[in-house]
């Protein structure tokens, strides 16, 4: 099987305007992935499926990943004049990274028996800009899995035929797999509360007293 760089070059040639980049994976598994922009995701995925060398006819796994807003620190060498002498000094440069959601697709080929090629789509933000392109029209196996990503992460899949909640009930409001999800306060009376439960109980008891 060709390397991911070769696949990327051929996909770029086949789909004009597609912005692709390789996301490196430093773990021993060495499963690098291909990040594709949302506008061209469908065309690139179609290329990967129909290309005679790749024929990735089987989309095995679809999932979401949540990345919160983060402050990344990077060590940068800066030239500075210290006591009249120019010196190279290491400084920590801090950059803010806006949070985003990802949809990850693991593609294999059943006919050529190779894989995986990992495709990622990234949303611009986490709050309202959460749209990516649905690949269900290409692989039917995405149908339930994209619904699950929508259900648990709140990623909207453009072009999905039936985007409803799948595991949580229809009236549920939040997205439970997000990293900043707060569990509902299911308070139950306990005769001898302690630690966290005591803290929780105090709030509820205060509310009770106000009512009374």
């Amino acid at each position: 099987m060709e390397t991911l760089e070769q696949t990327k070059a051929r996909a770029e040639a086949a789909v004009p305007g597609a912005q692709l980049s390789v996301v490196k994976n430093d773990s021993p598994s060495a499963q690098h992935s291909l990040l594709v922009d949302v506008e061209h995701a469908y065309a690139v995925a179609k290329f990967l499926r129909d290309d005679p060398q790749l024929r990735l006819d089987y989309c095995s796994n679809v999932t979401g990943v949540d990345f919160l807003d983060a402050e990344l620190s990077e060590k940068v060498k800066v030239k500075k004049v210290v006591d009249g002498v120019e010196k190279e000094v290491e400084e920590v440069k801090k950059t803010k990274r806006a949070g985003y959601l990802e949809a990850v697709y693991h593609l294999y080929s059943m006919s050529l028996k190779h894989g995986p090629v990992i495709l990622r789509q990234r949303t611009p933000g986490r709050a309202d800009l959460v749209k990516v392109t649905s690949l269900t029209p290409l692989w039917r196996s995405c149908e339930f899995q994209e619904r699950e990503v929508f259900d648990l992460y709140g990623v909207l899949f453009d072009g999905h035929p039936d985007l409803r909640r799948i595991l949580m009930w229809d009236g549920f409001k939040d997205y439970p797999m997000r990293k900043d999800y707060v569990e509902p306060d299911d308070y139950e009376y306990e005769p001898t509360p302690h630690d966290e439960v005591l803290e929780k109980a105090k709030a509820h008891q205060a509310a009770q007293e106000v009512k009374a």
Partner: peptide, 10 residues
């Protein structure tokens, strides 16, 4: 504690 990275095993 595995090193940062990802893996899909099946």
């Amino acid at each position: 504690r595995p090193k940062p990275g990802e893996a899909y095993g099946r």
